[in-house]
Design a protein around this nucleic acid. Structure first.
Lengths: 191, 191
DNA sequence: CACAATACTTGCGGTTCCGAACTATGTCTG
DNA sequence: CAGACATAGTTCGGAACCGCAAGTATTGTG
């Protein structure tokens, strides 16, 4: 189980590699540990509670969002779940095919689509979520309750900050040079 | 930019949906915000510094790991990068094809493979990492330096805890019932 | 009613991703 | 030293994933 290097060792190696470069270690450690933790937690949750229901992480998150909010327009589901609209179309299709989710047209605005859990989906989430939460408690075991709160609050500030200022920042960074096209992706037809 | 719901609103909706269910809110908020923050940060970094070099997040992380540690056996690279061995094979292939990474056999143990940056890879990372770190500072803007340290430290504890106890926990949870096979995945050849 | 804006879907091209099966190599043991 | 076992890496099936372009349908507007 234990890796080749602990986080502490990694941070020391970075220090050695970058001794000359002026870099901000606290922020680096914070960001890098957010991703380490996210990966480790996701893996644990997938292989404990999710796997038995043959749900992927993303599938579960989508179900969760719809469950919490009830009927929800797809664009908001994508945003809350942290995936693109295009990806959501596919994930929703998978979940529909398993009878967990249904897709409804909006009564007044014909452009909109709304997602809702089926009764089976409701039942699954009612069964699954307590187990999921138990594992959230397990992974948070090394934190005092007050620490967990403080952790959540700091992360919330980061997310809010990014939502408020991220786009402007990216704009400023690239100045007048437009974003280079991706290597992949659909090409314009006409040429 | 701003989403349909803030994190605070989401937490309130969860409370409403789950008022009856005894669940641990602090831990839930902590875990869920870790993933929200990870997603938001990853997206920001991809669309600011990584995109211009046509690097994906994972590609960058792999380069970073190899850069920090110098030559490294692939299994450790995968572990440090938080991806499976199989994924690493593909990612390394992509990076090799762009001339950033090279793959060497181990001199004494023929089973091992070792990864190392090419000079181009070294140059890219020397150029890229300071920019990357600047954005790490940007996303950490709402945190005091001491807060960033405390955040990193709490997350480190969670990761360590999972590394030490996660596997046993998953074993205990599923008792004697073996893990169900995934829907996807390779099937036995012979019949 | 022409025309712009909006919302979703579809499809492309590439990448990532897991995990089990498979291959190759090394190590242990009778 | 042969057979069993262990270890490292690759291959492969199925799914997820993005960003973009293009397509479909609907709504709002001058």
């Amino acid at each position: 189980m234990s890796g080749h290097h602990t986080i502490a060792e990694t941070e020391k190696a970075v220090q050695a590699k970058l001794g000359a470069v002026p870099l901000r270690r606290e922020q680096m450690a914070a960001v890098s540990n957010i991703h380490r933790a996210a990966t480790a937690i996701r893996q644990h949750l997938e292989n404990s509670v999710l796997r038995t229901s043959d749900l992927t992480w993303t599938g579960f998150v989508v179900l969760w969002v719809v469950w919490i909010w009830g009927e929800m327009e797809t664009r908001y589901v994508a945003e809350e779940a942290g995936i693109s609209k295009g990806t959501l179309t596919g994930v929703a299709k998978t979940l529909q095919s398993r009878g967990l989710l249904e897709r409804l047209g909006h009564p007044t605005d014909g452009r909109l689509a709304v997602l809702r859990l089926t009764p089976e989906g409701e039942e699954l989430m009612a069964d699954l979520f307590p187990k999921f939460n138990e594992e959230e408690v397990f992974v948070s075991d090394p934190l005092e309750s007050s620490e967990a709160q403080s952790l959540a609050e700091m992360l919330r500030r980061m997310v809010t900050h990014l939502e408020a200022n991220g786009e402007q920042r990216r704009l400023d960074l690239r100045g007048d040079t437009p974003l280079p096209p991706r290597r992949s992706g659909r090409r314009a037809k006409h040429g």
